[in-house]
């Protein structure tokens, strides 16, 4: 896909040619991603959730990919320190896919857009399969066995979820292969893919704000004659439910754009939440 340059033939074996599809990682490196995905929630924090563990999963592979490019390594690592929250079993599919794109020389921005568009849906698929389907089924089966005094209950439960862990390995290899094959397509359409991925990512973020940010008020406003209006259910919810979480997120966005430190924001939020709930506003 790189344009042919005659003068390039004078140094055909130059190893750092960024345009040539590169294969740097071994099968073992990809399996290692599945192992390291165990760290996904190791440094789980309320602000950016899995960002540190997610980055740690890819970090050794990235170090190998960008062996002689410390700036590129730093850029890729830094870009992944933003918010991410996905399902732990489907995480190696995503990280291996991203790593294969980095390996082939895809830009940090494109990989980020693909990540942001995929982590939410992968979390949804993983939650649906493992939390909402497999877990209740296994809870029912194992509990009935255990209730009859059989140790088979916990053993069966353990084996099924052990299988779910082992599934991370084929998922990592699958994600890596998809990334390798999709690379040419993505590169040829980089602008359109970026745009489509950003649209998907921003749509998901809109949904995440509605689902994850929780803000409501128990305040009641007197309207005379001893009657009151519940501010939340009879005012805000009548305009549009979740309007407070949306407004709050935009407020935080405005503060971040004014370069307010996120760590400071978190302290302020905790202090304000406690004070406002003491006085009965939250």
């Amino acid at each position: 896909m790189s344009e042919y340059k005659p003068e390039a033939t004078s140094a055909p074996t130059a190893p750092a040619s960024p345009a040539a599809p590169r294969t740097i990682l071994s099968k073992h490196d990809v399996s290692n991603i599945a192992w390291l995905s165990l760290l996904n929630q190791a440094a789980f924090n309320m602000e950016r959730m899995q960002n540190i563990g997610f980055t740690a999963t890819m970090a050794p592979a990235l170090r190998k990919i960008y062996k002689d490019q410390p700036e590129a390594l730093a850029a890729a690592l830094e870009d992944n320190m933003e918010f991410v929250n996905t399902h732990n079993v489907t995480q190696p599919f995503l990280t291996a896919l991203m790593v294969s794109l980095y390996e082939k020389g895809e830009s940090v921005e494109t990989v980020r857009n693909i990540k942001v568009s995929l982590f939410g849906p992968l979390a949804g698929i993983g939650d649906a399969l493992f939390w909402f389907t497999l877990m209740p089924i296994m809870a029912g089966i194992s509990a009935s066995l255990a209730n009859n005094g059989s140790v088979l209950g916990p053993i069966l439960y353990f084996l099924v979820f052990l299988a779910a862990f082992i599934l991370r390995f084929p998922l990592a290899h699958w994600g890596y292969d998809i990334g390798t094959r999709a690379f040419a397509l993505i590169s040829a359409n980089a602008r359109r893919v970026n745009q489509a991925a950003t649209i998907l990512g921003v749509t998901i973020l809109g949904g995440l704000i509605a689902n994850y940010v929780a803000l409501s008020t128990p305040l009641e406003v007197p309207i005379g004659d001893g009657n009151t209006i519940a501010l939340q259910t009879e005012f805000f919810d009548k305009i549009i439910p979740n309007i407070l979480p949306l407004a709050f997120t935009f407020g935080i966005l405005a503060l971040l754009r004014k370069k307010v430190n996120p760590a400071l924001l978190i302290i302020l939020i905790i202090v304000a939440a406690v004070i406002l709930s003491v006085v009965g506003v939250l």
Binding site: E82, L205, L208
Partner: peptide
């Protein structure tokens, strides 16, 4: 319930 908004706003 509020702190995740910081993470989302950083992505936005």
């Amino acid at each position: 319930g509020l702190i995740p908004a910081v993470g989302f706003a950083m992505l936005l």
